[in-house]
Design a protein around this nucleic acid. Structure first.
Lengths: 252, 252
DNA sequence: CGTGCATTTGAGAAGAATCAATGCCCGTGG
DNA sequence: CCACGGGCATTGATTCTTCTCAAATGCACG
């Protein structure tokens, strides 16, 4: 028994109507279970749609020619996965399960129909993608222009804030399934150095770690460490027409 | 006398119809001239639309709390500027002219209308944004997981390929208005180190520099140095409906 | 009770930053 | 015409962050 798909990432900018949400839900295929370590999509696979993540953490990563790996995004439930590859013939990113996960495919055809028939949903998708792009910009700024400890602080806060939004945060404490190597691949560091930095953060009293669990014991100190602040997102942007203006109004 | 806006970034995935292109062109405001060093938009400004760059090079950058600056994108003519801020109340990036530039504002309202009335244009915009996102991913991988020389090679190739697409490349040689500090801000390096690396590339015979001009004397060697290959983009993706299927068909 | 993965720790090396000075080009104003 | 100043490029010397290599430890799991 699979619960309804989490759509908070699509309704965070705008309240969608029931028909609009039904259209989204209806466009998704059956649940796909991916065990920890499994792949939902590999770089080079044919692009057959995008994915909506129901449960679990997944990582989007890119392989480099020298064998290195750049983790591009830690995806949490509700995220849309694989959208960057929409403009490619062959997937540009690997989607790997960091925990046991469940996702659903939204096939290209269904995505196209959604786009054509529900312009407000299309607008929400656009905003969602822009938000992802900003996250990428923040990560880039962090990797390009900050010290290792600042990057770690920013990453922990990012997870903190996003987990809070989906109710998976309890007293600034959350499940933390990432290995130090994965953190390194995300932040442009070695696992060895991640280890030292996390210990340093622990000694400063900013965080407390137990296996697979992370507690931010001094969120304010972490925010001071972080190289950038929190973004303020729009709500009900004026340029998206009100629901009643939607095409094909369904008669009551 | 301002020439027609360059729309190659919007038609590279799909041929648009004349009415669709007219709608885009019609949505843009009057040309805005920005002298080298001037700002089109500052971080924190109110978001009133996006911009279409006609002429010149512009940089999108983000300021860090410690005073550092991350250059996020070097924009060339035809690019859409400022789209990441669509989901923010207040601009998240500064748009600064790297050369004398000309841009046009597409106001939010016009953008919304475009989205609502021309779903194929909306789809093209989505693909365009995804392409930008991939560029950001590539940059991130480069900054996070490659040496300084590899990053420089990748940046030079990126400019090479994009300038080629707009006919501003002559025998692997192009106008290069970036200061070494700006390159450093883009690649996560200091200007001092950029200088050394560029000299190294020169000594290896990969590039030749004269003031404000760059020549790639060994493109293949640079491609071997670059941490990633070229992307292959879709053309006429099946999920976007054919032009005749567009709503509001204009009677002949 | 091995086995395999992840974390932890140490020592040394390397890449890039920092600090500091110099030179060059070019526009400005005396 | 020339002195001056600002921005940018270049170079050297030194420091420091982070990587690399290596090994030990701990822990989960069959």
């Amino acid at each position: 028994m699979i619960s309804q798909p989490p759509l908070h990432r699509l309704t965070e900018f705008l309240d969608l109507t029931a028909p609009e949400m039904d259209a989204i839900i209806g466009s998704a295929g059956p649940p796909i279970r991916v065990p920890r370590g499994g792949m939902l999509r590999r770089e080079g696979d044919r692009v057959d749609g995008i994915y909506l993540l129901h449960e679990g953490w997944m990582g989007a990563s890119m392989l480099l020619r020298d064998g290195g790996r750049q983790l591009v995004k830690i995806h949490l439930p509700g995220d849309l996965l694989g959208t960057p590859s929409l403009c490619l013939t062959t997937a540009g990113e690997t989607l790997a399960a960091l925990t046991d996960s469940v996702a659903r495919l939204i096939p290209l055809a269904a995505f196209g129909r959604l786009f054509e028939e529900h312009s407000r949903v299309a607008a929400c998708l656009m905003l969602s993608v822009q938000k992802e792009r900003l996250a990428l910009i923040d990560l880039l700024a962090s990797v390009g222009r900050s010290s290792a400890i600042e990057r770690c602080a920013a990453m922990l806060l990012d997870l903190h804030d996003r987990l809070e939004a989906i109710g998976q945060l309890h007293d600034a404490s959350f499940d933390f399934p990432l290995t130090q190597e994965q953190v390194g691949d995300l932040l442009g560091l070695t696992s060895v150095h991640v280890n030292r930095v996390l210990r340093e953060l622990g000694q400063q009293g900013c965080i407390a770690r137990t296996p697979r669990r992370m507690t931010l014991t001094d969120v304010d100190a972490l925010r001071r460490l972080s190289p950038y602040g929190r973004r303020r997102f729009v709500r009900d942007p004026g340029w998206i027409p009100a629901a009643s203006a939607t095409r094909d109004p369904v008669p009551a």
